[in-house]
Design a binder for these strands. Structure first.
Lengths: 235, 235
DNA sequence: AAGTGGTCTAGACCACGGA
DNA sequence: CCGTGGTCTAGACCACTTC
């Protein structure tokens, strides 16, 4: 019996092996269904998966083609910092630096789409790996959307971990960049002047309402972000 | 009539609105099918989509739960640098620095999984945006897998663009990091000493055979990598 | 053992959009 | 127009895995 996964892999091989060249029209679902001795629905499912992952392009009446421009997606996973460190056998420590409710600077208000002067929870904290500063977490939490945050002292659990555990979200935006450190970062991360840092800025929404905005600062020499983008056997 | 997209969105709303809390067990397919007046297959399709995007976790017999998210995903698209620059209205220029066939250093051989002393195509080139160096492309291409590369001078088209246009791939691995520049980078990118740079290292495979390994170096002050990750309205 | 998701079939109708 | 993909139904059997 041929499952849609089998068919997916067979079709994938044909693309890999160049049997179906980029830009080429591939047989219609009906024909493949006949070839594989299964229903059209089964073939459809396999081809949809290939289309979703960007290898095929499908249009009604026009048929299905192997995509020509192979701009494909790589997926990063950004884990809870504690897990990240513990997973590679490191010793994790968390330190709360400050926690207050204040009106955020204009830049943060813009990122979070806030207009009024309502106070926002601002939490500054540090994550250590093996005793060395690993990440400075500079976080803003909208207490209108997440009132529970007012009851959380963040003394033993980081905002990062608390939010991921407690608050669902629907959209996120990331900015990754490198920069020379500023004095605050140098102080907290024990850096020399103008050492390079790797910065992740993330804004997270729950149904069009900003939940939180965070700036994560890492010493460049101890941080790398890795993706492994598999296309093959997966399914 | 309720389509699987409708159902997908209804279920998504229930998660968004907190009607279904993270970790909670959600109704079985049969029950939802009855509720929406459709077949179980239709419900299954909607729920699979939600599971694929990481919002639901499904196990036979154990049922379906709202995921207690432990990681966040970010999606990054491998661009053609020229398009990236032109798309935001910039003026693009390409410059080939060198092109040779040599035995690569051990580090590159390891990344690409090469063992012998076979020569590999090494292409060094620069991408400019509005006259300023934007990206240094330090690329290795396996000419066993991609013999066509020997016929391409790379004088007017960059390896980046040529490869994306001509060579399909199945897997990719990325490393993102920040670092102080080295002297070669400072020379080509017109940087002062030890300025921070943003580095992307990518290895690309075609069916378990390494195609190319590249190191992309950007001046930190003119580069940011942005992702926008939707869980929502898409489908 | 039994409930849950995973998947297939056969047939059908619809929606889009190229010829 | 009419071929192609998009999707639904009804019913079925299977594959897990927890109870």
């Amino acid at each position: 019996m041929r499952s849609y996964k089998d068919i997916h892999n067979i079709l994938l091989d044909r693309i890999k092996d160049g049997e179906w060249q980029p830009g080429a029209l591939v047989p219609a679902e009906v024909d493949l269904a006949r070839e594989f001795g299964c229903t059209r629905v089964t073939v459809n499912r396999a081809m949809q998966a290939l289309a979703d992952s960007g290898l095929l392009e499908r249009r009604r009446r026009a048929g299905t083609r192997v995509v020509q421009r192979m701009t494909r997606n790589a997926v990063f996973q950004i884990p809870i910092v504690r897990h990240e460190i513990e997973q590679r056998g490191g010793n994790y420590k968390y330190l709360l630096i400050s926690r207050e409710e204040v009106t955020p600077p204009q830049k943060v208000k813009a990122e979070m789409g806030l207009s009024g002067d309502d106070p926002v929870m601002h939490v500054l904290s540090l994550h250590f790996a093996d005793g060395r500063p690993y990440q400075l977490e500079d976080r803003w939490i909208d207490i209108t959307t997440v009132p529970q945050a007012r009851k959380e002292p963040f003394e033993t659990i980081s905002p990062n971990e608390w939010l991921l555990r407690e608050i669902p979200y629907t959209n996120a935006e990331h900015v990754f960049r490198a920069a020379p450190s500023d004095t605050e970062e140098e102080e907290h991360l024990s850096l020399a002047e103008n050492e390079p840092v790797f910065i992740i800025e993330r804004t997270t929404w729950l149904a069009d309402q900003a939940v939180t905005h965070v700036r994560l600062v890492h010493p460049a020499n101890s941080f790398r972000l890795v993706t492994r983008d598999q296309h093959g056997g997966a399914i």
